[in-house]
Write a protein that binds this DNA or RNA. Structure first.
Lengths: 305, 305
DNA sequence: TTGAAAGCGCTAACAT
DNA sequence: ATGTTAGCGCTTTCAA
């Protein structure tokens, strides 16, 4: 029924080995033979069976992206999908296939072990939200090809990459100080929000280095929501000495911040500078261009390749 | 090196066929043999090679989700990832694997053809944003197992599912009218936003059925953004006869709407009812609970299974 | 109830 | 430069 390498070989009057060699353009085959084989392939509409090929080659040409999905994840964690998209792109370029797998930190050890033992994929990309110490051990002991996206928060042997949020924070602070702003405020997520905390750390390190003192109420914490950004900004405006620049932990917050300033008739950046970290979607919607420390999460996915 | 079915057979003193039969619990094997084989598998830590199994069975146990990814997609299309997550869930339950593939409407025909011919997957899930007439033909002629997510906007043979947005609109309108609201306004996306348009259609059909006349300025169009919702709401508040209920096309818009009402000191739902369509994230952040026509996009993905 | 053996479709030594 | 052949690891008919 389906055309196999045998059919092609027969039609071309060669052996299957020769056909294989032509396909993989390895070994030396004479031009006439190549032509005959190619003609036969055309004529028969031959398409090699990838499964058979990979099986014979003992490779899968696939990479598993293990992360926590579940309801509302599309809304709560766009960054992850952004990375996933970048990853897919990179893998495609290298002829790999992306398998997406939903898993929890509890289940991952078993899953990965099984995936590796049953040879489901050649490599793994693991979101930091689902790693564990046992997983570290498993991966280390078995030398499983992997990469963790996001910095692990415990001692480990993982190979990981992350956006250097602390550094981004430093950049942000330096930039503002260099522009002449004196008193920087930060409105960020909760203490659990590591990204926000890292950005704050970076900012602090710069301010300390320059002996700038930050009033307690210059650092506000809240949810990563439009509204929360709004309220935190209003809180800042009520402080004794108003700051002259606000660094927002992320875009949701920045959104609310801009709103609040607008409602208070404050001009950006004249009355108040506003800075945030991700480009999207500000490039499109904000008339007063905010300063943006652009971090390419998509690109982070691409780097995995 | 790796333990194969042969090793198990040897250790259990049987043939590989028997081992295979034990694994697939088909055919009749005596209990003692089953025990021996299982013991051998345990002892050797045998793990069947899935690639080999699928190859022999001529199946891949994989489904490709073809959609358009690319930069910022995580932010612009959370719904899609929501569906993807549901899909993954459903596939996992059936022992299938989800392959995610980025593709455009231009490239999909070639990709799918290739994917099918080279036997990359057993089935396809295709996002409506990348379908085309040629694809329809290809899939129809070759009887390729598939499902399109989202309603195609041209005559076709696709097997597709979609959220019935028009019906959701009807529900919304009926609900409000039954609660005693008289003049319904709609703030929605642009004309290109099909979801928004379908919801509006549903609303109109109910209003027409009851001979309710809708003033022109009761239907506002804008971007699917927080800000846009804000401005559209303010526009509504400036109309001659203010409406007593606002239906928002989606949550971004609803977000801005609530804000605007708040800024205008209007109480929800006393002064104005607000209704929107997706649950998330209102369940968490809004004190005055909005009425929500909950559409489970995640579940839509699950249905694919 | 079990086993022998012929594949699945391709690759890769090894020979020629 | 080309062909022979033995796999890859599992399934599945067919016979015993």
């Amino acid at each position: 029924m389906t055309i196999t390498i045998k059919d092609v070989a027969k039609k071309a009057g060669t052996s299957t080995a020769t056909v294989s060699k032509v396909m993989n353009s390895s070994y030396s085959i004479s031009q006439p033979t190549i032509d005959r084989v190619k003609a036969a392939m055309e004529e028969l509409h031959y398409r090699p069976n990838l499964q058979a090929r990979n099986f014979a080659r003992k490779s899968t040409q696939a990479v598993i992206f293990a992360t926590q999905l579940g309801q509302n994840i599309g809304f709560t964690n766009p960054h992850m999908f952004e990375m996933m998209s970048g990853l897919e792109q990179a893998l495609t370029n290298k002829g790999y296939t992306l398998i997406v797998k939903n898993i929890t930190a509890e289940g991952i050890h078993e899953y990965i072990q099984n995936a590796v033992e049953t040879k489901m994929a050649d490599g793994l990309v693991i979101h930091a939200s689902v790693i564990s110490k046992e997983l570290d051990e498993l991966i280390y002991k078995n030398a499983i090809p992997h990469i963790v996206i996001g910095k692990p928060d415990f001692y480990n042997h993982f190979c990981w990459i992350d956006v250097n949020n602390s550094f981004a924070g430093e950049l942000a602070a330096r930039h503002l100080l260099e522009k002449g702003y004196q008193s920087l405020a930060y409105i960020g997520g909760t203490e659990e929000d590591k990204i926000s905390m890292h950005r704050l750390e970076g900012i602090f390190s710069v301010l300390q280095e320059r002996d700038v003192i930050v009033p307690r109420d210059y650092v506000q914490r809240g949810e990563s929501l439009c509204d929360s950004g709004y309220f935190m900004t209003e809180a800042l405006l009520k402080t004794h000495h108003k700051p002259d620049a606000i660094i927002c932990a992320n875009n949701n917050i920045a959104y609310g911040c801009v709103h609040a300033l607008h409602d208070n008739n404050m001009n950006i950046p004249k009355d108040m500078a506003v800075l945030t970290f991700d480009d999207y979607p500000f490039s499109k919607i904000l008339k007063p261009m905010l300063t943006v420390v652009n971090i390419d999460v998509y690109d982070m996915g691409v780097q995995e390749g």
